[in-house]
């Protein structure tokens, strides 16, 4: 297997706080990987370093064999890393269509001036996949929360990324919506690598082939769902902080 992303001794400090401390991490092509860990373990900071929202204090990030540590966020997105925000971040005053069109437009711009027909087709396809095609004309801000999360994912999909990072995608979704989401991610994983931060253990166990556990900014354990379930240190970390099941 070839590595899609690798980090070497990746570190980020905020003042005295060691949010991410010397993390060596490897993600293979085609994987669905979950990162779990108690609140404040540094999960969001870690994926933010990969997608370029935050600059590292030290260490290196390699994507498809290329060192991207110094690359600004927008260039990383164009290289194929898409990020969906933990707190839903869409364009509430634009229609669902326009939200996704911004993604498609960006992808098409790389190949020259986008044609309106290609734009429409691209948006249609992404909305079809998340099941929002009949809401295309609605203002995104008027959608129910669960649907806003789907718009967010559609925007990520429409970029046709090689790596899709999902930051707590099921937070605030109903049980029914979570099931639909699991099916959606399986489908996405057929042509993209997925890295997700998730608190819902059901989702993690259902989806992930491998799990990375973080605590205090470091990688505590890594392995298959069964290995993680049986890991003593992981149990201690969760019981110790008494958080999230």
């Amino acid at each position: 297997m070839t590595a899609l992303v690798e980090t070497r001794a990746l570190t980020r400090h905020f003042g005295g706080l060691k949010a991410v401390e010397s993390v060596d991490f490897r993600l293979d092509k085609g994987e669905i990987r979950a990162i779990i860990g108690p609140n404040g373990a540094g999960k969001t900071t870690f994926v933010s370093l990969i997608c370029g929202r935050i600059a590292p204090s030290s260490g290196a990030i390699v994507f498809e064999g290329r060192d991207i540590t110094a690359l600004p966020a927008h260039r990383r997105v164009r290289a194929g890393i898409a990020y969906t925000f933990q707190i839903t971040s869409i364009f509430p005053r634009l229609t669902v269509f326009d939200n996704v069109a911004l993604s498609v437009q960006r992808r098409l711009l790389s190949a020259g001036r986008p044609k309106p027909s290609a734009l429409k087709a691209g948006v249609g396809e992404a909305l079809e996949r998340v099941g929002l095609i009949d809401r295309a004309g609605t203002l995104a801000g008027n959608l129910a929360y669960g649907h806003q999360r789907l718009v967010e994912i559609a925007m990520g999909l429409a970029l046709e990324p090689k790596l899709l990072i999902l930051d707590e995608p099921t937070q605030g979704l109903s049980d029914g919506e979570v099931e639909g989401f699991i099916a959606l991610v399986r489908e996405i994983a057929s042509d993209a690598t997925v890295l997700l931060i998730e608190h819902n253990m059901q989702v993690v166990m259902d989806l992930a082939r491998r799990i990375t556990v973080m605590n205090f900014g470091r990688v505590l354990a890594e392995g298959s769902p069964e290995e993680i379930r049986a890991n003593k240190a992981v149990q201690d970390a969760y019981l110790g902080t008494g958080s999230d099941g």
């Binding site: 927008h74 990020y83 925000f85 971040s89 869409i90 634009l94 993604s103 960006r106 925007m155």
Partner: peptide, 12 residues
């Protein structure tokens, strides 16, 4: 409307 989102959609 949302500068940070645009950056993360790959816009300069």
């Amino acid at each position: 409307e949302n500068e940070e989102r645009m950056r993360m959609l790959g816009y300069d």
